[in-house]
Simulated assay, not measured.
Amino acid sequence: MKKIILKYTLVVIAAAAAGLVQSCKEDDPTYGTPKVTEFSPAAGGPVGTFVTITGTYFSTTKPTIVKFNGVQAETLETTGTSIVALVPTGATSGKISVTVEGYTGSSATDFAVTAGTPSPAILTFDPASGNGVDGVSVTIKGANFSKTAANNIVKFNGVEADVPTDVTDRSLTVVVPEGATSGKITVEVDGVTGVGTSRSDFSVPSPGVTSFTPKSSIVGSTVVITGTNFSKTASNNTVKFNGVEATVSPDDASTTSLTVTVPAGATTGKISVTVGGQTGTSADDFKIN
């Protein structure tokens, strides 16, 4: 009788464990046969095209293989629901497949491998923000850039930057142009159809005036303005007292502090700081004695 009870108990435990494992697997978005639901560009493209594959049961930790009609591709970025890959040399039109630990899923439609030169594509950029007046350099990483620096046209929200430096077909370093505002970064390559556009915006922060000392004074006196996103080059900051432009001390300018002289003709009102076409204004009035 004891043996029968023991055997029954073991069976119950095993069944419970199996159910627990199955439940965990169902709750795990990385477990299961990969499914390719779509890819972009949907119309296809030539060898070297930057393709975003969307689906489920992809993995960031397990070995993942992407193939274009049987030819293995280079993967640049992987999440649980998307993969960025380059159409490999030798690929022909056909299905895109994703294999994770031996389990394979394929696209329902064919990716068309066409003739021609692939468009540039942007994967990441660093840093994510900066102001053109201070000569901030940004490194853009992606694919299909020109190795000839002058052939790459980089724009920050439509404002063209100078010719990039440190150029490879995967990376460009550019200086944020003066006058740039927050928005997408684009890369065009001379003679190539198509534009590479960043997935996120590059941020050009506006200056902010948080305080000033003293709160009131006479014309010709010195005022220290504290805030954010000022230019460390004094001449790049335009400071106004109720609309009248002041002189910024060249020796005391930083990204968080400016020393200025109250200008002749100033009247009681707000203090504003303009950097690269963007303006921040104080909440309080500066009072002229």
Score class of each variant (00 low, 15 high):
158 G>K: 06
141 K>Y: 03
183 G>D: 04
189 V>E: 00
224 V>Y: 08
111 F>D: 11
154 V>L: 00
95 K>G: 10
171 S>M: 05
226 T>N: 15
217 S>R: 04
68 F>G: 02
54 T>G: 15
6 L>F: 05
94 G>T: 00
88 P>V: 07
211 S>C: 07
142 G>Q: 05
148 T>H: 09
243 G>W: 12
128 A>L: 12
249 S>M: 01
91 A>D: 02
60 T>I: 14
129 S>I: 03
198 S>M: 02
233 T>Y: 03
89 T>E: 13
195 V>R: 01
120 P>S: 00
192 V>S: 13
28 D>T: 06
129 S>T: 02
73 A>P: 10
133 V>A: 09
4 I>C: 02
85 A>T: 04
15 A>W: 12
88 P>C: 08
80 G>L: 08
76 L>H: 02
102 G>H: 08
69 N>F: 13
46 P>M: 06
233 T>D: 00
165 T>G: 04
270 K>P: 08
111 F>S: 08
109 T>C: 00
80 G>T: 14
159 V>D: 04
51 V>S: 06
135 G>Q: 01
8 Y>Q: 06
189 V>C: 07
122 I>L: 14
129 S>L: 03
262 V>P: 09
94 G>S: 01
17 A>D: 08
173 T>I: 05
203 S>G: 01
116 G>N: 02
276 G>L: 02
99 T>E: 15
151 N>E: 10
95 K>Q: 12
112 A>Y: 11
257 S>E: 15
201 D>Q: 12
33 T>P: 06
112 A>E: 13
54 T>Y: 05
212 F>A: 01
156 F>Q: 01
66 V>Y: 07
17 A>K: 13
263 P>K: 09
20 L>R: 01
56 T>P: 02
266 A>Y: 04
153 I>P: 04
56 T>N: 05
172 L>P: 03
236 N>K: 12
179 G>W: 04
269 G>F: 11
269 G>W: 14
17 A>C: 14
115 A>Q: 06
267 T>E: 04
155 K>G: 00
207 P>E: 00
129 S>H: 06
90 G>E: 00
113 V>H: 07
103 Y>Q: 13
287 K>R: 11
150 A>C: 05
